[in-house]
Design a protein around this nucleic acid. Structure first.
Length: 151
DNA sequence: GCCAACGTTGGC
DNA sequence: GCCAACGTTGGC
């Protein structure tokens, strides 16, 4: 069964236009346990809201898809990487990534302010736990936001 | 650029 | 195991 997620990225680092251009990308560098656990729970084909954080305005820019399920994030072993983790063990990696593929760019960005203002979305993790960068989304919320983008 | 929120680290 | 200090995220 398809599940729904939301991932955040600063668009000056990797926007949805960059994702469209590349087709897909490894989602590396996540160093938060809960976010990692969420990635490990993803299945190929799951749908993902692509959120632009630290943008003006911040909001959901489009839809992506899980194209490869969780596998070890090599950057944890790379001493030259900002994501290097000196405690990481090759036999039992700490950090994982998934691959995310481009699906569509919304005709307009759905700003965080509108999501916060909509009572139906008041339970969203995005609204209540602003710092979690990979989070599950209810199917209803996914549909509501998709409709807001096209409505 | 500021600063509140909050996850993580580390001393005890 | 508690909790203060610290660092980072991310909205504004």
């Amino acid at each position: 069964m398809t599940a729904y997620w939301l991932v955040k990225e600063n668009p000056s680092t990797f926007s949805i236009d960059d994702l469209e251009e590349h087709g897909s990308t490894p989602w590396y560098g996540v160093r938060n346990y809960e976010a990692r656990n969420n990635m490990q729970a993803m299945s190929e084909g799951d749908r993902v809201l692509y959120y632009h954080s630290s943008a003006s305005p911040p909001g959901v820019a489009g839809i992506a898809r899980v194209v490869k399920e969780a596998y070890p994030d090599e950057t944890q072993f790379d001493e030259g990487s900002p994501y290097h983790d000196p405690d990481a063990d090759r036999e039992d990696p700490t950090w994982y990534r998934v691959d995310i593929g481009y699906e569509e760019t919304f005709p307009r960005l759905v700003p965080l302010s509108e999501i916060k203002a909509d009572e139906r979305l008041s339970e969203m993790t995005l609204v209540n736990r602003s710092r979690l960068s990979v989070q599950p989304v209810e199917e209803d919320a996914f549909e509501i936001i998709t409709r807001m983008a096209k409505g």
